[in-house]
């Protein structure tokens, strides 16, 4: 890989110091484990002048969890989340999603905040600088055309592939953000704006594969929080070409409630398919009865309408959509019958 460009590393120890550093250096990037950011810097995709090492910020390291609610600091390691006994017991979808990320060494390094803000990916983007230059830089870097969808009129289709986001979306999580204008809390679903619509311009609420987070300038992730729902069963699974050190073909989180012979709550979220993690809309209409032909067909229709993988990886889009649908059906059936 290429040599690293010149930059400074700041090592704040409190959240206030980190925010002050971020405000003072608008061009800075927060550094967690470096498994995404450092790779992009080495590929010449990013060249921040300042990196803010978030790993010594004490406030960001706590996992506060019981059977009612969970709050996870942004600098918590993925290994710690995956192995936490209370997370495994009360929020299985979250522990399983954390355990499915990359390989064990990556999970020792990677952080919750970093995984939530994981950069979107594409075969025309995650390449060395000379490769990208030789192939006409794409829209997500400095180019003027999306090579995946040349007629996209300026819309980037790079794929979001973080594993924690779909799990947290099924738990209806909120995320705490802090920036130069203070703190705010938003539903996690509103963090992801990669709708990639060609009929509306990019705004703070409508983005694409390039502008896929609604973070405002200078904002950082502080923590993510969710409440438990009594009786909720949940699980996460994903398919990848290799078992470890690999991005997903598709990842699926499912949470549901069964009362007697009735499905009373159903939440399904996907990753590795669209430029945002997708919490499937319309699943409430599948509830009310058991899992029968109507539910299976209804789920297939929702996946067909909302899950739109493009040719951003080596596996074709139509295959990834089928994998996503099959995984969702399998997980839903398994949880319902468990």
């Amino acid at each position: 890989m290429d040599a690293l460009p010149d930059f400074r590393v700041l090592n704040p120890e409190t959240l206030d110091e980190a925010l002050a550093a971020r405000a003072q250096h608008p061009d800075s990037k927060p550094l967690g484990g470096g498994t995404d950011l450092v790779v992009n810097i080495r590929r010449g995709i990013l060249a921040p002048s300042v990196l803010i090492d978030m790993n010594r910020v004490k406030e960001l390291h706590a996992i506060k969890v019981d059977e009612n609610s969970i709050e996870i600091g942004a600098s918590v390691r993925l290994t710690a989340l995956a192995q936490h006994s209370d997370v495994i017991a009360h929020y299985p979808v979250l522990a399983q999603a954390a355990a499915h990320i990359a390989g064990p060494t990556h999970r020792n390094m990677g952080t919750v905040g970093g995984n939530l803000c994981l950069d979107t990916r594409c075969i025309y983007y995650n390449q060395s600088e000379w490769w990208r230059a030789a192939n006409n830089h794409c829209l997500k870097t400095t180019g003027s055309m999306c090579h995946v969808a040349p007629k996209s009129r300026g819309v980037c289709f790079a794929t979001y592939s973080g594993d924690l986001a779909p799990a947290l979306l099924t738990l209806q999580a909120e995320i705490d953000l802090a920036g130069p204008n203070g703190k705010r809390t938003i539903p996690l679903e509103h963090l992801y704006i990669g709708f990639a619509r060609q009929d509306v311009p990019v705004t703070e609420t409508q983005g694409d594969g390039k502008f896929f987070l609604s973070l405002r300038p200078g904002e950082i992730v502080v923590a993510v929080r969710a409440k438990n729902t009594p009786g909720l069963r949940s699980a996460y699974d994903k398919i990848r070409i290799r078992r470890s050190i690999e991005y997903p073909v598709a990842g699926v989180a499912v949470a549901l409630k069964r009362e007697g012979d009735k499905l009373t709550d159903l939440r399904i979220a996907f990753t590795g398919t669209n430029p945002r993690p997708v919490l499937l809309a319309g699943t409430a209409e599948l509830c009310g009865g058991g899992i029968d032909e109507r539910v299976i067909k209804g789920l297939d229709a929702l996946v067909r309408d909302q899950i739109m993988p493009m040719k951003t990886t080596f596996t074709p889009g139509h295959y990834r959509r089928r994998v996503a649908g099959v995984l969702a059906r399998r997980l839903m059936t398994r949880l319902y019958e468990s």
Binding site: V9, T35, V39, R42, D53, T105, H106, N108, M109
Partner: peptide, 29 residues
């Protein structure tokens, strides 16, 4: 691989395996 994919650069930091090709020396004080 020099990009976090192969593990040849694995070292232990505080007894936990870590990829030295993606770790900045400035973060290990």
């Amino acid at each position: 691989c020099d990009g976090g994919e192969c593990g040849a650069c694995t070292v232990l930091i505080d007894d936990e395996p870590a990829l030295s090709c993606l770790t900045l020396a400035a973060t290990i004080a």
